[in-house]
Computed example of a mutant assay.
Amino acid sequence: MVLKVDSEPSEETKPILSNDTSDNYKTDLKIQDAYKHITSSMRADPLRIEKPELALELFSTAVKIQNVPLAKQCIEILYNHLNKHNALLIMNHISKCKLVAANPPDPFDLEPSAPPIVENDNQMNEDWVQDLVDNLRNSCLLEIDKNADFVLRHKDILELSYGDVLTVLTRDTLQASNELLVYSAAVRWAVEECKRRTLQPQAINLKAVLRQLVYAPRYGLMSKREFLCRTVDGVKGPDRSGFLEERETERILDYIKKKRKNRAVEELPHRGSVPRKLCGERPRVYHSGMSGDSACSATSTCDKFVINFLTCWTAIFD
């Protein structure tokens, strides 16, 4: 099956949380067990939850029944448990919660065991969920930035929506040690998205679901060997993928060649040659998924020595 796209798809993959949630709300034993003591906990002591997954489920419940105090407590719990292992999970979940909040279900369909607790009318404006999750989402992105190498290899990145994965991979502050990590994450996500849409992972379908993600990797920051890699993590390398037009490939290779010779060259479009704002120098090493002569090499010991020597010399005589 081949996907032909005349314009951008009008909607993303159907979110896990949908408007028809009353049955799930009543049958989800985990939420029911926790919800039995929500009212008393909120009026006496703060909720004590050690698992972020449970806090996310309770937050979803709070959004559906528009219970602001419960939602705030869940957000605080998530802040306290945020780390590189769950940043993608939290970011993905709160994005779906915002989708549900945009079209809240009829409260009479939910029949909650206790009435929603509302602090005041001003809090129940249409942006209340947005206000709660914006800072948490930003904290997730900062956690992703500083742990980019770990996060880009994590399986949870394959579950993000198109908008979220585009946000992550195009950030100037993403501290990936190599742009091939960004390329690999984008293509692996596209393969999973094709599966979700019951499409064959052929080049034409992958390019269609990638859309602007084709330009998320900053190809101008790669070496020639990296750009011409045959395979990366089981997928074809940038030059062999078929995602880029021939003229784009030629321009990228020309940029890489001139950059290596320290010659003046016009910057690539789509910020393809703009360095990301890394915190300190990091070695350009990539090991996973490379084959034979296409493997991308690390910086040589001699190069490292020269760089360190020049850095010390500048520091002493500046």
Rank of each mutant, 00 (worst) to 15 (best):
E245V: 02
E245F: 12
E245R: 15
E245M: 13
R247V: 12
R247D: 15
R247W: 13
E248V: 00
E248A: 03
T249D: 07
T249N: 12
E250F: 04
E250M: 12
R251D: 09
R251Y: 05
I252N: 02
I252K: 02
L253I: 08
L253P: 06
L253S: 04
L253E: 10
L253R: 14
L253N: 04
D254V: 01
K257H: 10
K257Y: 09
K257I: 04
K258A: 09
K258C: 04
K258R: 13
K259E: 04
K259A: 05
R260V: 00
K261I: 00
K261M: 10
N262Q: 07
N262T: 03
R263S: 07
A264M: 11
V265D: 05
E266V: 13
E266S: 12
E266W: 02
E266I: 13
E267V: 05
E267P: 07
L268G: 03
L268S: 02
L268Q: 05
P269E: 06
P269R: 07
R271M: 07
R271H: 10
R271S: 08
S273M: 03
V274S: 12
V274G: 00
V274Q: 14
P275L: 04
R276F: 00
K277P: 00
K277F: 07
L278T: 08
C279A: 09
C279G: 02
G280Q: 15
E281C: 10
E281M: 12
R282M: 12
P283E: 11
R284W: 01
V285Q: 09
Y286L: 09
H287C: 06
H287Y: 06
H287P: 00
S288I: 10
G289P: 05
S291G: 06
S291R: 13
S291L: 14
S291K: 13
G292Y: 05
D293W: 06
D293I: 11
S294C: 01
S294R: 00
A295C: 08
C296S: 09
T299M: 15
T299D: 14
T299G: 09
S300C: 01
C302V: 11
